[in-house]
Nucleic acid binder design. Structure first.
Lengths: 357, 357
DNA sequence: CTGTTAGCGCCTTCAT
DNA sequence: ATGAAGGCGCTAACAG
């Protein structure tokens, strides 16, 4: 037997070592190994412990989590279902989730629904079959029977960013209402008096609805001050809906209004920016002001004012909620709304009131 | 008992139903249930099958994957270790991986190392304890003992984008050499004659080294034609290294050279762009040409020329390789280098040769 | 302090 | 065509 293979080949060639192998190697029973693994130290004689450590090292033994989970009923797995990893928001939340999971000793099982309801359902079922101890869900929003089944089956669920109709669970996200107010306050203070809120079709996504409602309400309350606004629904999969934006801007500028576009999230902002650039050329930013919720990486490059979400904290908080639930806490569903932060950049500085034609 | 609870409460209240419960409910043995679950249809009488289906539905039974895996030795889990989810490249590769995994019936366990070696190692170990059947790794690049242990332990490993010193495994990524050549060819054809290649410290990341080498070689071969170039190492965590870029540009322009910056990847491109913007203002793009490898979402917005990587395909191919290996294929390590695609935009159009001062 | 004995939920011969 | 029994790797009572 070649020298370099010695270490691994001691016992049966390929198969990973099991607790039994270790016990045999250490000349003891499986129980002691198990105790050692579970940190029940101090209950083992020093010499036994040493023998065990040697055996483990020699066999390169790693306890099989599946088997442990099967036995004790908890596998430390938590599911994290993300609607769209393409959205930087999700990735940032994810980072918070991951960090918190590690702190609590969970292993996050990340699933990416890619905005497809079928995938969402499929992953939810999969998570269920893997017996995750809890699930953090950035749901697509559609009433998902599987999700409800999970929740009713005793698996803790905490929602992120969006709530789901008819499902009462913990939920954590941005304080959308206040965020929108903050943004509008800023725009108005900068002298803009015609605000165009651009949002994707609400579909079932609660945060979009809430943001739009907040926009409408705030504008309504501002009516007397001469500030007006309107909502434009933009379908990212349908370029034609972009035309309405142009029309609105045109009309307003013709009336000599100082127009500002307010995108409900980063994907919308990007699409709008691309469109405006195609329309007005490289210096489109001098033609129309644009801000958005979500502080994406290119916002700084474009000098676009944004409301940054406390994404990382959202992720952390979600895990905290989940952890409490997993530990057995029983209480009414909680809602955690975190404040956004206004990042002022040049895009909303001087309302130059540059006319239309 | 309230009516709405009837469905779930039939058998013991909370615990998920097990195969035994189903067998009892269907008035048969566990074996038949198992057979049904494994699609050994045609071996079951129609009526038995119906009874089983009813029982499963009634109890909302889902087989426990952990238990199955424990028994048959394969749990259909594959690990996907991502160095940095913040990099859109990774997310795109991920999508290919996910799609392919579904096609093959694998469940991808996604782990995010967040550029931390400790995390990388920890996740690798975790994946090992969960007995994944294979791992796709976008490694940090450092010589990772754990990775080697895994591979030698018989777990198939496929590397993405980067290779790891001293580790021979399948690997799939961009054809960096050709990509760089293509880019340089483009720049030269556009009239640029002073090319500055900006890359992060190579550290252990093979793709960076390869790209830089390709740049140096290609420029070298071009020497006669009056095209020159240099490599600038940019540390994203140290703003001071940006100064060198300015100095180089200045010097070259003073010599009346037509300068183009060539970023080795998206993060570098973004940092450089931000810097240039801070330095030259909103119309920085008229002052200096910038292109990059990686076609990030803001590239279109900035009108930046790029080489787009076949990210999705890379992910798919990685899973294919892994699958073959899991199925037991034995052969020498393969290397799959996919071609990039040049996306020409305005940033590299007219080398206006705008002087320095 | 340490070892023995039952299972966890499922699959797989092996009988029937 | 169907069921009974044993065991995957591990933990958790019980005994010693």
């Amino acid at each position: 037997m070649s020298n370099e293979n010695m270490a691994r080949d001691n016992f049966s060639n390929d198969r990973r070592a099991t607790i039994t192998d270790v016990a045999r190697e250490a000349g003891t029973g499986k129980t002691s190994i198990s105790r050692y693994l579970n940190g029940e130290t101090g209950v083992l004689s020093t010499q036994l412990r040493e023998r065990i450590e040697e055996a483990i090292a020699k066999l390169d033994y790693r306890p099989n989590q599946m088997a442990r989970g099967l036995k004790r009923g908890r596998n430390r797995l938590v599911g994290m279902l993300v609607a769209d990893l393409t959205n930087p928001y999700s990735v940032e939340v994810l980072q918070g989730v991951e960090a918190a999971c590690h702190a609590y000793g969970y292993m996050p099982l990340i699933c990416h629904a890619a905005n497809e309801v079928d995938l969402e359902r499929r992953y939810l079922q999969l998570l269920s079959t893997y017996r995750v101890e809890g699930v953090i869900v950035n749901a697509l929003g559609v009433k998902e029977e599987t999700l409800e089944t999970l929740a009713r089956g005793g698996v803790p669920v905490v929602l992120v960013d969006r709530s789901v109709d008819g499902l009462v669970t913990d939920m954590v996200g941005l304080d959308n209402t206040e965020a929108v107010r903050m943004a509008i306050r800023h725009l108005v203070s900068q002298g803009f008096d015609e605000l165009l809120f651009v949002v994707q079709p609400y579909a079932q996504v609660s945060s979009r609805r809430v943001r739009e409602a907040a926009f409408r309400d705030t504008i309504g309350a501002l009516g007397v001050s001469g500030v007006s606004g309107a909502t434009i629904v933009l379908d990212l999969d349908n370029d034609e809906t972009l035309a309405e934006i142009d029309a609105r801007i045109d009309a307003a500028q013709r009336r000599n209004r100082r127009v500002a576009l307010f995108a409900a999230n980063a994907p919308v902002a990007l699409r709008v920016a691309l469109h405006l650039k195609a329309l007005h050329g490289a210096d489109w930013q001098r033609r129309v002001a644009l801000m958005s919720i979500d502080d994406s990486e290119w916002a700084e490059l474009a000098g676009m004012t944004t409301v940054r979400q406390p994404t990382y904290t959202i992720g952390e908080r979600a895990v905290e909620f989940l952890h409490e639930r997993i530990e057995g806490a029983v209480m009414a569903a909680r809602e955690c709304l975190l404040p956004g932060e206004l990042i002022v950049r040049t895009s909303t500085s001087a309302p130059t009131n540059n006319g239309g034609t």
